[in-house]
């Protein structure tokens, strides 16, 4: 069985679904702008953009556009994994997927890839035009680097999502609802909307355990005035090590879910 065929099939499924739901497509493009607007409205109502820029190091609209893009990408990729067992059960496709000879691990590795490709599309409608508008050619180069770092963060997040999916769905019953509790915490710990270096110490320590938070920190430091190559490489090295630690656990977790599902009986 070709992994590429599997990826192609998943792409067709995700894009077919997305292109035929116009509201979803519109939301996909508008999401970072909508969130930016939301944060700016609150921000301007409660404080000054100058104070924000002085504290964070970048204008709020730029920070939130980039934060929105990073969050949407990571969430999109993670959600494709986190909600897939539920989605397939709801669509009635789960029994056919379980009864197919495809390796569950291969399948769950293929699932986040279509959304990852969409990073390029969504990036070109958010980060790229905004940074190019404000900073010119250097901004464009930064935007492309941020795109790459975001893709990396999303891949790293996929490993965490695999662990959570397998565990919560494998535990059966209503445990999947805990996804709604875990997800917001992860988003905070990733640090896309609230820079990690501004988090309280305890949250910062937890944040270091989330592999995606490291490329996100590199992207943010790049945004607020540059990052030393050595420090960036160190962060990416830590992220890769964590990813390599989480990935086998994630794959085992998916196998655990499948075994539990078959032991209980797949709903038809």
């Amino acid at each position: 069985m070709s992994f590429l065929d599997l990826v192609r099939a998943e792409m067709r499924m995700v894009y077919g679904d997305m292109m035929r739901r116009k509201a979803m497509l519109a939301m996909f493009i508008a999401y970072p702008y909508v969130l930016t607007l939301f944060f700016l409205l609150i921000g301007y109502a409660l404080g000054s953009p100058r104070v924000f820029a002085a504290r964070v190091g970048v204008r709020p609209e730029i920070f939130f556009i980039v934060g929105g893009f990073i969050t949407m990408t990571i969430l999109g990729v993670g959600d494709d994994i986190l909600w897939r067992p539920m989605f397939d059960e709801w669509m009635g496709t789960l029994p056919y997927i379980i009864a197919s000879p495809v390796s569950r691990i291969q399948h769950y590795l293929a699932i986040p890839l279509p959304r990852l490709v969409l990073v390029l599309i969504s990036g070109s409608t958010t980060v790229v035009p905004v940074l190019a508008y404000y900073y010119g050619v250097p901004g464009l180069l930064d935007a492309l680097t941020i795109l790459g770092l975001t893709a990396l963060a999303a891949v790293f997040y996929a490993a965490v999502a695999l662990v959570i999916t397998g565990l919560l769905f494998g535990m059966g019953g209503e445990h999947w609802r805990l996804i709604n509790v875990v997800r917001p915490f992860l988003i905070i710990l990733v640090g896309a909307y609230y820079p990690r270096y501004l988090l309280p110490l305890s949250a910062r320590i937890l944040s270091y355990m989330v592999p995606s938070s490291h490329p996100v920190e590199v992207a943010q430091r790049l945004l607020v005035g540059g990052v030393e190559a050595g420090y960036a490489l160190m962060l990416l090295g830590v992220a890769t090590a964590l990813f390599l630690l989480y990935m086998p656990a994630g794959l085992r977790s998916i196998v655990f879910w499948e075994k539990k599902k078959v032991a209980e009986g797949v709903k038809t």
């Binding site: 077919g16 679904d17 496709t93 197919s100």
Partner: peptide, 18 residues
């Protein structure tokens, strides 16, 4: 048992890959 937003052909091609 099929994805509603895909056509019959696309659904079959998806499962063929699987």
């Amino acid at each position: 048992g099929f994805y509603g937003k895909l056509t019959g052909r696309e659904n079959l091609e998806y499962f063929a890959a699987l």
